[in-house]
Amino acid sequence: MAELDDIIHQPLRLRIMAALNALPSGTGLDFPRLKKLTGATDGNLGAHIETLSKAGYVAVEKAFVGKKPQTTVTATAVGRGAFARHVAMLQEIIAARPSE
């Protein structure tokens, strides 16, 4: 049996990937919205996005909208694939060992 993806398995990173994966390919979420959707704090969210980014699962784009800096996070094709495999693994675990 394949292993769960350790990078995605962490609860907050799982929520980040689930949120980004729910969007059409190439579409991202800005930092405040991602924070609201996942219920994370600024520091916590930043750290976990960094981990996902280093793994190549998300792309982080920083730009200025007017005078305000805006950070947009988008799931990469590699990240979407990893997330799909992770979800398939979770379903496999449930199918293999149904809870009583």
Partner: peptide, 26 residues
Amino acid sequence: MIDSQQASEALADIDDIARRVRQSRI
């Protein structure tokens, strides 16, 4: 490795986030 209960909770979490993203876009 996690058990099926934890796997179910993780999938429920994923569904909940996906629903909130859809609602946010609407």
